[in-house]
Design a protein around this nucleic acid. Structure first.
Length: 149
DNA sequence: GCTATTAGACCCC
DNA sequence: GGGGTCTAATAGC
């Protein structure tokens, strides 16, 4: 297992690897890193430049069946658009509250775009802090990044 | 098992 | 805007 730091205009991002697969992404955290994986860094670069719309590298996810279902469903939310917790819950035959619980425990933000899920008349929450959510959404809308914090 | 907690939604005042 | 109530999954007991 190894980890490396990728730094974007947003701030530090720590990516952890095991057997060449990503098993954790932490926003706002810097890790003492080993060798960066070039393909993953390349994809992150492209994503933050607004060129790439979907990250696609081998990952290892651990979670309950329910959480996996929610996280997988996230990948069907198109780039630049948002869904409400309720809408996502409806697709999965569950409740908005349960969706929020699962999203909170998403180990791979960006890869599973939990920032595209917002509450009915506010942003909702975000495990790494709402500023990340705001900025990520701004990026996907093609707005220039307003900076952190 | 039961209870408390939660990144929601709703309704009512 | 602040209170209840419903909700389903989860963590902790």
């Amino acid at each position: 297992m190894e980890s490396f730091t990728y730094e974007s205009i947003f701030g530090p991002i720590c990516v952890s690897l095991k057997d060449g697969r990503v098993y954790q992404i932490e926003l706002g955290k810097r890790c003492a890193g080993a060798q960066p994986d070039s393909e993953i860094v390349k994809q992150l670069e492209e994503y933050f430049r607004g060129v790439r719309k979907q990250l696609d590298f081998p990952v290892e996810v651990r979670g309950t069946e329910f959480q996996l279902r929610v996280w997988r469903a996230l990948r069907n939310v198109p780039y630049g658009s948002t869904v409400s917790y309720k809408e996502l819950a409806k697709r999965l035959n569950t409740s908005a509250r349960a969706v929020g619980q699962a999203l909170k425990r998403n180990p791979l933000p960006l890869y599973f775009p939990c920032h595209r899920v917002v509450s009915k008349d506010s942003l909702g929450g975000f495990s790494a802090g709402l500023n990340w959510k705001k900025n990520l959404l701004a990026l996907e809308r093609g707005e220039r990044c307003a900076g952190n914090s």
